[in-house]
Design a protein around this nucleic acid. Structure first.
Lengths: 241, 241
DNA sequence: TAGTACATCTCGGGC
DNA sequence: GCCCGAGGTGTACTA
């Protein structure tokens, strides 16, 4: 169901009724006004506007992955006519944010029966942690896992373990390049034990680490173990079947 | 330039040539395979696929603001025919990631002369910092700004100042609710001075703060000043004109 | 609902 | 190109 060079009334009808079926796509020359936590306006230009059935509004341009202006799911989005122009207005309540799209000309309007499906993603940090729990020897020989996602006063410890000498080992996992933030995070956890006078080691497990982060790591007496998430997943799948 | 129920050859032509002009929109039943740092597949379903002239590939469904699958700007994205089916393939080099969209049926293909424009956003953290630099008394009476975005070993200090007693004051600014992360960040900066034996205070400026963050703040001997970004911007505009 | 942490985050600025 | 941090981040999960 779509219309080239639609009349304004047709456009309003398609946007308001077609949206429920899935996704509405509108292309035309428009101004966009955003006002909420911040504020911005887009001068007249041809843009791709998407309205989804969950209230999502996206205003895309010819570059970049992110929409220039948007309102997230749960927004109240609808079309109407004002001063002879098509207007799409979207309002989000908390925090309050409003987006209005004023069309001066319409190239195209269409509603599509697009659906939503489940995505099973493999390789997220959670998967990496799970894999390491199953194969802690990949971090260090003789490591015994004591806990996963252990809550502390200053955040969650990804993996808590004991080494062969019975020392606490805090393991912080990053699926890609670790920055100094990860080091400070790890340092906070290790500090909890060291303050209590207990011997504790900290190991940062990541696919790589920035030079600055590595320096801090050494300074704090922490360790780095390089683990490639892809290879890790592969080796685990091989082992486990 | 658009075609309903296009032939596969038409679709390939429109996608590969029309993309350069701006944005190509394809709707049809497709399977999607993503493989890279992580991996995922989408079972056959009707989806909205967008190809941008900068190589961006977006696979959208009927809900959520984010695409289910995507490849960012700079990817090599192109269409071709394989086994009688339209395939859109997108490859990103570093890190390597590949997305392939296999269409079993096509509802719609179109290329639009969408452009890109400049967005002037008002109310970002940078704006808040600038406003506070102009009106430091809103943080504390008698505060003298010494530096902005001051680089340190552990990150950039938003605002560096001196109080009436000549003490260093590190100001960390968050435009919305500050979490414990902001506190730890601030603590890192203040620690730099305190370690050197210099007296230093730390002030977290934000529109609000979580209970947990406030507790850490007190524990570290740091302070919180509530500043509403919108009111701040308004008051500054009034003052400055 | 608020708080927390992850994301194939994306994006822009600095060096 | 790497590094770093903000983002109107969005998204899922949990208490």
């Amino acid at each position: 169901m779509f219309v080239q060079n639609p009349s304004i009334d047709e456009a309003v009808r398609i946007i308001n009724s077609g949206r429920k079926r899935g996704v509405v796509v509108v292309v035309g020359i428009c101004e966009v006004v955003y006002s909420g936590r911040a504020a911005a306006t887009l001068k007249p230009g041809r843009r791709l506007v998407i309205v989804k059935r969950d209230g999502t509004l996206l205003v895309h341009e010819a570059e970049k992955a992110q929409p220039k202006i948007w309102n997230p799911p749960g927004s109240s989005t609808a079309a109407y006519v004002e001063g002879g122009r098509l207007v799409i207005k979207s309002v989000r309540s908390r925090p309050f944010e409003s987006v209005r799209v004023y069309f001066s000309s319409l190239d195209f309007v269409a509603a599509f029966d697009v659906e939503t499906s489940e995505l099973e993603l493999v390789g997220s940090e959670k998967d990496v942690v799970e894999a390491l729990v199953k194969a802690p020897w990949l971090i260090e020989e003789g490591l015994e896992v004591v806990g996963v996602e252990v809550p502390t006063d200053v955040g969650h410890i990804d993996i808590l373990a004991r080494d062969r000498e019975g020392r606490h080992v805090v393991v912080e996992v990053k699926r890609d390049v670790a920055t100094h933030d990860a080091v400070f995070q790890l340092a906070r956890y290790v500090e909890l034990y060291r303050k209590r006078g207990e011997r504790a080691r900290g190991i940062l497990v990541a696919s790589d680490i920035t030079a600055a982060a590595l320096e801090y790591l050494r300074r704090y007496g922490l360790e780095f173990v390089k683990v490639n998430p892809r290879e890790l997943m592969a080796s685990i799948n091989k082992k486990v079947g």
